[in-house]
Nucleic acid binder design. Structure first.
Lengths: 231, 231
DNA sequence: AGAAAAAACTGATTCAGATCATGAATTTTA
DNA sequence: TAAAATTCATGATCTGAATCAGTTTTTTCT
């Protein structure tokens, strides 16, 4: 039997919101005075791959999809829940553009933090820089896991994976409202819409999950985890 | 016609070796006095995924493969040439283990830098921390590109991609000696050994490349780039 | 409420690439 | 240098999942 262990196509990094604790009151005031609070409706774009990156975005509330795109295809990199940060890769000195796009999956409130101020703080406050390093590391590791899963797991494993990730890491509950269409779930899992539908049906038939409208309920997380590991 | 642009399965990040310039003479001495120079033969393991990460590795010379593994599968994340750094993701406060394995593709000399010293320098020298942030960003972006390519390009595109990456970014020449077996090339491109053989044959038949033993020569880089983009 | 549009679903077909089986060529080693 | 082992190569087959085509259900709009 094929055995895949450890890696998950889960999209979420931990601990993304502790980095601001390393700032002095004075530095925090800098942020306070320069931040811009913005609200987005479901489907709206927070940042567009290739556009000039003028700010780092902190997600106060909501759920955001980070994704790569070209003329034809899309690849969801991460789901960012509240507390997450978008645009850190634009801190690299080699380019000041957004390297990915971000779209609100739910209504979302976010703060725009001026990128040059961010740069300044990273360059002057080593503790803060260390925290940013941590966030980058975590994000990288999460991407590695997702990459591995997408390359080596097949459809049922990826779907099981994704459902467990949503339940345990995004919504913290075995029952949750997922504001995604089948097409969007397909994007998230890297499968076709039809495959998503077929797999969900199979899971329902085997009583692993229940779906009513947008409400998902996981009945047998152990079994899903097993599918995620072995398939 | 399908069109994929921009993203490459290329494995190499730029500018990995400038970060030490930000250290004071005193700090550099710290490294000098604590570093351990080690040589590896082709095939030897520099670090093992899951093992305790006691050091960051700087590649002085040679070529190293970074990869994820589980009981069954393998995924090559990056090729690290001289000047590259291995193990930065182990700097995260959440875990001090190696998150990937590394193996020498050629005879390689490397320096082991104590990880707690590395931590100390990141936490005390913001300029250095900024440089590390840069390296992490670049590496993340490169992984994103590779992820996208692997998900959306098909075999010919990925092979063309990989050949061009080797020529332009690793060996800086349209003719190079590649110390890899077909099996290893398969790992690198994420294809099966047989597919690699078939595709290389096709490329040879169409006179895009020549192969003699381990010596590869690229005759038509433009065509390869086109294949990489469109297919 | 009724029409139009979008989303969900289902079955049939296709396809890219893996896997399998086998043989030739090269390298290793004894 | 002969035997063994590895790597390279090629054709046949298989398969997971995408694509295609069409229907039903749900949502949106007027």
């Amino acid at each position: 039997m094929k055995e895949n262990s450890g890696f998950s196509s889960c999209t979420l990094s931990y601990d993304m919101n502790t980095c601001f604790e390393k700032l002095s009151d004075e530095e925090l005031m800098l942020f306070e005075n320069n931040k811009l609070e913005v609200t987005y409706k479901k489907g709206e774009i927070l940042c567009k791959q290739g556009a000039f990156a003028s700010h780092i975005t902190f997600i106060c509330n909501g759920l955001v999809r980070l994704y790569l795109e070209d003329e034809v295809n899309t690849l969801t990199l991460q789901l960012i829940p509240s507390g997450g940060i978008i645009g850190l890769t634009s801190l690299t000195k080699n380019s000041n553009i957004f390297h990915y796009s971000a779209m609100a999956y739910q209504d979302t409130t976010a703060q725009h933090l001026d990128i040059s101020m961010f740069h300044h703080l990273v360059q002057s406050n080593a503790a803060f820089a260390t925290e940013i390093t941590n966030v980058l590391c975590d994000s990288t590791l999460q991407t590695y896991g997702r990459f591995f899963s997408f390359m080596h797991k097949q459809s049922y494993g990826r779907m099981a994976d994704t459902l467990m990730c949503l339940a345990t890491r995004i919504f913290n509950s075995m029952e949750f409202d997922l504001p995604l269409s089948r097409k969007e779930l397909a994007d998230l899992t890297g499968l076709s819409q039809e495959s998503v539908i077929r797999i969900l049906k199979k899971f329902k038939d085997e009583n692993l999950i229940e779906i009513e409208g947008k409400t998902y309920r996981i009945n047998d997380g152990d079994k899903l985890n097993e599918i995620s590991q072995h398939g």
